[in-house]
Design a protein around this nucleic acid. Structure first.
Length: 849
DNA sequence: GTAGGGTTAG
């Protein structure tokens, strides 16, 4: 034990500095093994008061009446009643009726009717039971309210969430010449904290400094630190802390909390480490903070050290400390340890359950999360709104619609269906489970004009996620009209909606609006812009934004790489990858996938293989079936169908339908009907609901003129109730996005579009181009192109977004249309952009499409 | 009159 303590002292101060080195060492040898049982102290029997603090005794209206009667009797007998008797009654009575009875009694008594001290107590009592209006009325009846009366009134408003009124009341005090004291100021500081208003924070700080001896009033200092933390100003929090003499534990705890709230975990820990040397002993609050700091950093070895520090402190673990432990372990990646504390700790409350459920949900253990929710109810703990948010998130991740609907019922039963947070979670759940209609219902029923921007943004994202980019933009406009103020997150979601349908002009307009409204282009917003420009075929703009961003995260790098690969600039992708290396960013699985995509779009087999090798041997990344899929795709396209089939069959990932889909795609290109059918069977065996094999086979049969096969396939797909995603195309003309496809129905310029297409067909035939037989009439991408051509001046480039892949016929024809019209035409399908060139009727994909 | 554990759209 002694030796251990020595080592602990050695490790403590460097707690977080070692994070990089120890990230992967889940068993810290210094603290494991038989010499100390880390878990023993968690289960120590709690004292009753640890978990169920005694509620102050409250008197019912009946009790109060009895007591008042005896006071009256006493008054008549002796002619004297101690006002303290009333004060004590007021402090004990918990409900409004009782308070009203006492108030009536006081106002009818000759002796106490105008007694300021008693009335102050009445105001306070009303405030405590949530009756701000009554408190205000009683206050108005006080003839000369003093600073105590005012402060009590301020506290009543503060306790009930009316923080702005607190500031207003302070102004009234000033006008009337009543000087606030330290307690008044502390109350106002609390209100400013809740408002998070930095300007007000500076004002009240100045005032506190002018009114009180700040360096000696440690309570005021503590309140100020917390206020600055909530206003996001760590600098002034530190200034106040440093200037304070006689710092007590609460003050240090407030400073640690400030550091954590603003993300300075290293400073939080170094402040923790200075507590004991300064002669103070950390308490449960301090440790709960330390655990939160470790949870934020997510380093498991630090978590173990922190836990050990607590055990050595001999403090009794209460429910908050244990819950913080559960949270810390689960956020440091050890659900086992989290569960160990959770299972052993007594007195779990709703927060404890929420933490454990969130732990499972965030690691993707959705079944366990849902199971825990059931156990929680069985244990008799009532779920709250955070429980529902966590559980709904699990349903979203698992795409478990049935469970989601069940939880929705529980939400209604528990009365949380008016909570905006829960509503947003419901919207997200339904949209993630593919039930957009339910998401829209929830939105319309529960979300009103005045409701939070979060719900609107959730709905916007839900629409985009389900392929309804145009509706998302319409919702954004409606939101504007209804006066709901968009924030940065909304802008990001809206820009994503634009990206999904190729709305370049509209997306650009949102960008301008972001700038005009003074929002900063942070890394997420910048990345969404790079994505927009990349997906709209404007790699030049994407690069401009990319170079503008001073801070780039891995998603930013991956997005610019994707933009470059999507647009067929694989040389640029190579350069960017090198730049990324110089910048010190570590490539991840997505980075390599983008590189492989780039090769795949250009048919660069050897290069792809070399990237694949560097991924496994150089970067030690585990390839997913998508990486293999890319390779399979490349090899297949280059015609090595037999090898590919043997390769997939021989690997454990033969169980992944994506790979067989990829082979099927190659068989379509090379018209290998037999192998294509085999691949299609494998896909359907593994993923029976997948409609894509039918589409691809149908394309293959169409391309080789087997029209009967196309028809019987359509029949089969219909019988099996395949839900094929309906094909559609978008084109933005003059800043407006137009949709083409079955769903969109006839366009108002339908006749003119038809005439244009016929004209092109004739022209192509004259030039000797024989289009392959087109079984479904004009495909939507051609309708979109024809519309673009007749609605914009000659020479203006056309950009079309298609939700599915183009067929061979369209790809061939668009090359000719491009040459005939002399326009640059680009079509994005999925994750690649085809840039057609008018000069030689070719496509950037080199027909590796 | 001051300090602690949870989630919230990108």
């Amino acid at each position: 034990m002694h030796g251990l303590k020595k080592r602990f002292r050695f490790s403590g101060p460097s707690l977080l500095r070692q994070q990089q080195q120890q990230r992967h060492f889940h068993e810290d040898k210094a603290f494991t093994g038989g010499e100390f049982n880390l878990w023993a102290a968690v289960v120590e029997e709690p004292q009753a008061h640890d978990y169920a603090p005694l509620a102050p005794p409250t008197l019912s209206d009946e009790d109060v009446k009895q007591k008042l009667a005896s006071l009256e009797e006493q008054n008549q007998k002796s002619g004297f009643v101690d006002p303290a008797a009333y004060v004590s009654l007021l402090k004990q009575s918990g409900d409004v009726t009782a308070l009203k009875t006492i108030q009536a009694h006081i106002s009818h008594s000759k002796r106490f009717a105008g007694d300021r001290l008693l009335l102050n107590c009445v105001v306070e009592a009303y405030g405590k039971c949530g009756c701000v209006k009554d408190a205000r009325l009683v206050f108005s009846s006080i003839r000369h309210p003093n600073v105590y009366s005012w402060t009590i009134l301020l506290a009543a408003y503060a306790q009930n969430g009316h923080h702005k009124t607190v500031l207003e009341l302070l102004r009234q005090m000033d006008l009337l010449g009543v000087w606030p004291n330290a307690v008044t100021l502390a109350t106002v500081i609390g209100a400013v904290s809740e408002l998070g208003n930095w300007d007000e924070a500076r004002k009240i700080h100045a005032r506190a400094a002018a009114t009180c001896q700040l360096t000696y009033d440690v309570v005021l200092v503590t309140a100020l630190i917390d206020m600055y933390a909530k206003c996001g100003d760590i600098f002034h929090a530190e200034v106040v802390f440093d200037q304070a003499r006689n710092k007590d534990l609460a003050c240090c705890n407030a400073m640690i909390s400030a550091y954590i709230q603003l993300g300075y975990t290293v400073d939080a820990v170094s402040t923790f480490n200075r507590i004991q040397p300064s002669g103070l002993q950390p308490n449960q609050v301090t440790y709960a903070l330390l655990f939160r700091a470790c949870a934020t950093n997510g380093v498991y070895s630090d978590a173990r050290v922190a836990h050990m520090c607590f055990i050595l402190s001999k403090l009794r673990p209460d429910v908050v400390v244990n819950t913080a432990l559960v949270s810390m372990y689960s956020r440091c990646g050890s659900l086992e340890d989290a569960r160990r504390v959770f299972d052993r700790m007594p007195g779990k409350n709703v927060v404890t359950w929420n933490v454990m459920i969130a732990g499972y949900a965030q690691e993707g253990y959705t079944d366990e999360a849902l199971q825990l929710y059931v156990s929680m109810e069985a244990a008799g703990v009532e779920p709250d709104e955070i429980t529902f948010v966590n559980v709904l998130e699990s349903c979203s991740l698992a795409e478990h619609l049935a469970a989601g609907r069940d939880i929705h019922k529980h939400v209604v039963d528990a009365g949380y269906d008016s909570s905006l947070t829960v509503l947003s979670a419901l919207i997200t759940m339904y949209s993630a489970c593919g039930s957009l209609g339910d998401a829209v219902d929830v939105f319309h029923k529960g979300v009103t004009t005045h409701s939070s921007v979060i719900s609107w943004t959730a709905m916007l994202t839900a629409l985009t996620r389900n392929g309804e980019g145009r509706s998302a933009l319409a919702l954004f406009r409606k939101m504007d009209l209804e006066g709901v103020r968009a924030n940065v997150v909304t802008f990001v979601s809206t820009i994503d909606a634009c990206s999904s349908i190729g709305a370049l002009v509209e997306g650009h307009a949102i960008f301008e609006r972001v700038i005009v409204t003074g929002h900063l282009i942070d890394v997420v917003l910048g990345t969404s812009l790079i994505n927009l420009y990349g997906k709209c075929g404007r790699l030049d703009y994407a690069l401009e934004v990319f170079h503008y961003l001073s801070f780039k995260n891995i998603v930013t790098w991956n997005t610019i790489l994707a933009a470059s690969s999507q647009n067929g600039e694989e040389t640029l992708s190579d350069e960017l990858l090198q730049e990324m290396d110089l910048d010190g960013a570590q490539p991840n699985e997505m980075t390599l996938l983008n590189m492989l995509f780039g090769c795949s779009h250009n048919g660069l087999v050897a290069k792809a293989v070399s990237y694949f090798r560097s991924m496994v041997y150089g970067h030690c990344l585990v390839p997913t079936s998508e990486h293999y899929g890319c390779l399979v795709d490349l090899l297949g396209r280059s015609g090595q169908l037999e090898e590919v089939e043997a390769f997939i069959s021989s690997k454990p990932f033969s169980l992944d339908s994506v790979l067989w889909m990829s082979l099927l795609g190659s068989c379509v290109i090379h018209s290998d009907v037999e192998r294509g059918l085999r691949a299609a069977r494998r896909v359907l065996g593994l993923d029976p609901k997948n409609a894509s094999p039918y589409v691809l086979l149908s394309n293959m049969f169409a391309a080789i003129g087997m029209l009967d096969a196309v028809k019987s396939l359509a029949k089969l797909a219909g019988e099996r109730a395949m839900k094929k995603e309906q094909s559609r195309s978008y084109i933005e003309v003059n800043g407006v996005v137009h949709e083409f496809g079955v769903r969109a129905g006839l366009h108002r310029l339908g006749e003119k579009i038809g005439a244009q297409l016929r004209e092109w067909s004739e022209e192509m035939e004259e030039a000797g181009f024989v289009p392959l037989h087109d079984v479904r009439g004009y495909h939507d991408e051609k309708l979109a192109i024809a519309f673009g051509a007749i609605s914009s001046p000659p020479g203006v480039p056309l950009f079309v977004v298609k939700n599915l892949r183009m067929c061979v016929c369209c790809h061939g024809e668009i090359k000719h249309i491009c040459k005939m019209t002399g326009r640059d035409i680009s079509v994005r399908e999925g994750n690649r952009v085809h840039h057609f060139r008018p000069m030689d009727a070719s496509c950037s994909c080199g027909d590796y499409w």
